[in-house]
């Protein structure tokens, strides 16, 4: 293990994955064939959790070595020149460090989460205003997503990447261009030809569990008149 030097974590943070605990091979306990690609996604999720729990700089370095060159490439493909792309990429990686405790591995792969940070940073830079973002739904310190949910979502993410790799070149490039921001929304055909139903259902389930745990942890509040009339 690369992360052998951290103390036993006392607190449960963003994820229940302990940094030194489950090796990616643990995923095989689910009795399915697990590819290298899928265990890699689980590994990245574990490293983000290590940052959230222990401010683990080695975990950060490992994530940086994989994602930083890709985030920079993404920003350059999106129209940034090299020096701006590198500066912006550093912002993205610093945000990863600062917001690691808000990452939910039962809803997104680390790559997906980093993509959203990079996309938001790119838009803020290009348009010079802060883009409206949905309300966050963080797991509180007392609750954490179920490990089985995390493994399943990370495996789904791996399969999605494989499905993209198998698309005909033309279709794959079209999807890439859409995500580089080269297509306006009226050019986008939302039909990507990708199997998104499974991952959508799994995210939906994770959101239900999150809502459930939030409603259990919150003390009953006096609802305002506003709230009750909204129902």
């Amino acid at each position: 293990m690369l992360l052998a030097n951290d103390p036993a974590p006392e607190t449960v943070a963003a994820a229940s994955l302990t940094p030194t605990g489950p090796k990616p091979e643990r995923a095989q306990l689910r009795g399915k064939t697990v590819t290298a690609r899928e265990t890699t996604d689980l590994r990245w999720a574990t490293l983000v959790a290590a940052i959230a729990q222990n401010q683990d700089r080695e975990a950060f370095a490992e994530l940086f070595r994989h994602f930083a060159p890709r985030v920079k490439a993404f920003l350059m493909k999106s129209g940034a020149d090299e020096s701006l792309a590198e500066e912006c990429m550093q912002d993205v990686m610093v945000t990863l460090w600062r917001k690691a405790h808000m990452y939910d591995p039962s809803r997104a792969s680390a790559a997906t989460w980093i993509f959203t940070i990079a996309r938001n940073r790119k838009i803020d830079l290009l348009r010079r205003y802060s883009r409206p973002e949905p309300e966050d739904l963080p797991w509180g310190p007392e609750q954490a997503p179920d490990q089985a949910d995390v493994i399943a979502l990370q495996q789904d993410s791996g399969r999605l990447a494989q499905a993209i790799a198998k698309l005909p070149a033309k279709q794959r490039e079209l999807i890439q261009h859409a995500y580089f921001g080269e297509l306006s929304h009226s050019d986008i055909a939302a039909e990507t030809g990708l199997p998104l139903g499974t991952i959508k259902s799994r995210i939906r389930l994770a959101l239900e569990r999150l809502r459930h745990s939030m409603s259990q942890s919150e003390a009953p509040q006096t609802r305002t008149k506003q709230d009750t009339t909204d129902q």
Partner: peptide, 20 residues
Amino acid sequence: ARLEAYEAVGGAVLDTLDEA
């Protein structure tokens, strides 16, 4: 959930880029 599924496609695109 539908939005995050589309964001997952973005994650996969990012993850498969050639490194700068």
